[in-house]
């Protein structure tokens, strides 16, 4: 456990918690502007959260422990990821946890908690959302694992820090065929996993289409705040991971204050760029029919598989 790791372990969760709602706000603002609306400003998510946290917690009748624990599990898993993954600093405070497989599985665990919560409500919407979400997860998780695998084979390790440092040392690796294929696959699954267009529309509540929102319909007050915070954090973490796996430059490699500050700034820049690109893209995309989504995901699975094959054959 190095000094850099400890610094990262403190700075990263703070940055993610503080920055993710802003990221979401910024993406909404960009969309609003591009669609010709004024937009609520980039701090609006934070204002929403504050309001929700101030409300009375509700326990809907007929729901149980699972329903109540799910938001905490969701936030906690994301927090752990932001704690261990090399987002702003290249070292991790808990190196044995900062494994790519572990990170992917942790994020999936959060989704599972939410799906179970949806089922626990016993409503038609909850079940519907959970069913759709699990269908997507069942295809996203394999793609993530295979893509991770493709990135790990050349490095010979699934440790995130090792992959990032390896790319830093050998920049050519970032544009290897395996890497590129994996990047495309990852982008698609991240879009799916974070519930963005064209897989899911976070700003709609139409029962024909909604996935994520259907699961969380029964949440209110602080619980809802946690769910909203968590989905923002997941977006942030995923984008940060994506950025650092392929474009790690700027990440802090020493524990000096400037290096760390630079790391955080670089992270912010990379995530904002990616987020804006996503937002701009969303403006021009329509939501896919639900049953077309698997085709998209199958495509990304295939890309990831090709990436693995490439990493083996071209090694």
């Amino acid at each position: 456990m190095s000094a850099l790791g400890i610094v990262g372990g403190v700075v990263q969760p703070l940055a993610v918690v503080a920055g993710s709602p802003v990221l979401v706000g910024m993406m909404r603002q960009v969309r609003a502007r591009l669609e010709g609306r004024a937009g609520p400003g980039i701090a609006q998510p934070w204002r929403d959260l504050r309001k929700l946290f101030g409300k009375e917690p509700i326990a809907p009748r007929g729901t149980g422990v699972v329903f109540r624990a799910a938001p905490y599990a969701l936030v906690a898993t994301t927090l752990v990821v932001s704690f261990v993954a090399p987002l702003a600093t290249v070292d991790s405070p808990l190196d044995p946890v900062a494994d790519l497989f572990a990170v992917v599985a942790l994020l999936t665990a959060g989704t599972v908690a939410l799906a179970l919560a949806g089922l626990d409500t016993g409503t038609a919407f909850g079940g519907m959302g959970a069913s759709r979400e699990m269908t997507i997860v069942a295809l996203v998780e394999p793609t993530l694992l295979v893509a991770v695998f493709a990135l790990s084979v050349p490095v010979g390790s699934t440790n995130l820090a090792a992959i990032v440092s390896s790319t830093l040392r050998d920049p050519a690796r970032a544009i290897s065929p395996a890497s590129l294929l994996a990047a495309v696959a990852l982008v698609i699954v991240i879009v799916a996993e974070t519930g963005r267009l064209p897989v899911d529309n976070p700003s709609t509540h139409l029962e024909l289409t909604m996935v994520h929102e259907a699961m969380v319909l029964e949440y209110a007050g602080p619980d809802l705040a946690l769910v909203e915070l968590a989905s923002a954090m997941r977006l942030g973490v995923f984008l940060a991971l994506l950025a650092n796996l392929f474009v790690p430059w700027g990440i802090a490699t020493t524990a000096g204050p400037f290096a760390v500050l630079g790391g955080v700034l670089a992270l912010a820049v990379k995530v904002v760029v990616l987020g804006l690109a996503l937002a701009v893209g969303e403006v021009f995309l329509a939501k896919l029919r639900l049953f077309r989504v698997p085709e998209l995901l199958a495509g990304s699975f295939l890309l990831a598989l090709l990436a693995v094959a490439a990493s083996f054959f071209l090694a």
Partner: peptide, 29 residues
């Protein structure tokens, strides 16, 4: 770490952010 994070989160939310008790209510649906 995961359990710790979750427990810490519960502590933060229940002790710092909202200190009201949960109220039972009808499912909205």
């Amino acid at each position: 770490v995961s359990v710790g994070a979750a427990l810490g989160l519960v502590a933060v939310v229940r002790l710092v952010l909202t200190r009201q008790a949960r109220r039972a209510a009808r499912l909205w649906d």
